[in-house]
Amino acid sequence: MGTIFHLDIVSAEESIYSGPAEFIVAPAVMGEVGIYPQHTPMLTRIKSGVVRVKAPLQDDEEIYVSGGMLEVQPDVVTILADTAVRGQDLDEAKALEAKRKAEEIMKNKTSDIEYARAQAELIEATAQLAAIRKLRKRRH
């Protein structure tokens, strides 16, 4: 213990890397960070960029991540990679879009309901007419 730590790189869609590592370099928002085992606990956002992983007895591996979060514990390092391109304004725009769509549907639905009601009334009226016609025929 002490010369390696466990590294997980996961995104919502898949697990990208899981295994031991001796050293990694990640693009944190405040600048690149290099992490060796027994690092003090740390939480930070990372920018989109390349994470360099040095696994024991292997060459450096470079993994691209499109931003996310980095959690460091003395023996475990986790990178939660984003699958979507994120940004405060971007998220806001998406939220507004989802809201707008819902409102639109609520508005349209009332007309739909009215349409359905009108249709039901029409069917009832035609049925009544048909019944009256039948009655008349019987009388003659």
Binding site: A12, E13, D82, T83, A84, V85, R86, D91, E92, A93, K94, A95, L96, E97, A98, K99
Partner: peptide
């Protein structure tokens, strides 16, 4: 995820 973000937000 891209599509879900807005509605969840």
């Amino acid at each position: 995820m891209e599509k879900l973000i807005g509605a969840v937000k």
